[in-house]
């Protein structure tokens, strides 16, 4: 079920990038796309009835159904990278605003 939510979020993100003319809205839809993707990655690692993959006192045997730890590790890096890109995007948005005085791509004069 989580899978479908992820895919819907990703579709929403893509739709956002395609239709929005506002820089900030594009960055936001970019984030939605990334979040969708991260949820998708997490849903991959789900094991029915699995337990958090941390060795503690009572469940240190390999046989107990651990949830797959790898996607969670990947998601961490993916989130960090997402933050990086968003930060750069916002910095660029500030510069664009400084230069053209608006966020709407359509009415930016001399954008060519």
């Amino acid at each position: 079920m989580l899978l479908y939510a992820a895919i819907i979020l990703m579709m929403l993100g893509l739709y956002g990038i395609l239709t929005q003319r506002n820089i900030i809205k594009i960055i936001i839809s970019l984030n939605i796309l990334e979040i969708g993707l991260n949820i998708f990655i997490i849903s991959i690692g789900f094991v029915n009835g699995g337990v958090a993959p941390i060795f503690t006192g009572q469940n240190n045997l390999g046989s107990i159904g651990f949830v797959d730890p790898l996607p969670q590790a990947l998601v961490l890096t993916a989130i960090v990278i997402g933050v990086g890109t968003t930060a750069l995007g916002l910095a660029l948005a500030k510069k664009i605003y400084a230069k053209y005085g608006t966020f709407e791509i359509d009415d930016m004069k001399g954008a060519e």
Binding site: L14, I17, L18, T19, I26, I105, E112
Partner: peptide
């Protein structure tokens, strides 16, 4: 064109 969504359009 100078619009960002062109690439995304063609990818889709």
């Amino acid at each position: 064109t100078n619009k960002p969504e062109i690439t995304v359009l063609w990818v889709v």
